[in-house]
Design a protein around this nucleic acid. Structure first.
Lengths: 138, 138
DNA sequence: CTGTAAATTAAAATAATTATACAGTCATGC
DNA sequence: GCATGACTGTATAATTATTTTAATTTACAG
């Protein structure tokens, strides 16, 4: 269990209410929201919050390793406070994005390393399909 | 071996020099170029070519399944005339993008289907690291 | 407390991509 | 052959997510 405040200070960033607020939204959701969604969620509590601040805060958290950015190809990025490297899956009907917790990833990684000769430092793995709820009506 | 002309006609699209030119650039490279790169490569031969035409052509080819779009997170899309679902890997130093031909993908797919209950229809799998050439100087 | 660098904010700028409008082209029926 | 109407290619303008700017405010070390 880490402390956001501590981590910010460690990296020489100031601890501001806006930053904590942005982080807490992400920490308390499974929705993988985009910057605008986070912004809209914060507006009632922080009426002067600006979208640029949300973007900048997310950038800071990305750089200190507390948040990862997801690009599902929707035109805008989504964000995830779970920074473990894990695949994501999106429903092509309802648009939800879920985590995929899969141990087989490591086998795949080893295979790719061996085939390509690369030193692999990160991945972005996205699956698209129809979720159990949407399957029927599909 | 398929015929681009035939495929275009089958889908009711006209066969234009511009479209063939865009397709041929993609077909004859392993570089996974972006729209602008394709455009610049065509300009000498097609001085009136416009970037919008390149985008439109790529869109058509994407829709009839002759080209796939890659989003490596660079801000612009890259394109690949190899439409097999295969992972890609990019070097974080020199920026090159290569195909990864890996049979283990199917095991991973089965695992993800089972864990999530989704009907999976496509994936986008990107790996990032340092290629053999750049490894040393890294 | 107070000074100072860093952060916030609103507004303007940027960059990739897409839509619009229109002139030209082509396939088809006559 | 030729008129017609749909389609294409192009330049231009529009769009949208994100970033930059610049003035003001804030966090926090001393």
């Amino acid at each position: 269990m880490f402390d956001v405040t501590k981590k910010l200070k460690e990296h020489g960033f100031k601890v501001t209410p806006q930053r904590l607020a942005v982080y807490n939204v992400l920490k308390n959701t499974k929705e993988h929201p985009c910057a605008e969604t986070i912004y809209n969620q914060l507006l009632p509590m922080y009426p002067t919050m600006s979208l640029a601040t949300v973007y900048k805060s997310l950038e800071v958290f990305k750089n200190i390793g507390l948040v990862q950015e997801l690009d599902l190809g929707e035109g805008s990025s989504r964000y995830d406070a779970n920074t473990n490297q894990h695949p994501h899956i999106q429903c092509l009907k309802c648009g939800r994005v879920e985590d995929v917790d899969n141990g087989m990833l490591y086998d795949l990684l080893d295979g790719v390393k061996e085939k390509t000769g690369y030193d692999i430092v990160k991945q972005q793995l996205y699956f698209y399909g129809y979720c159990p709820k949407c399957k029927r009506s599909h």
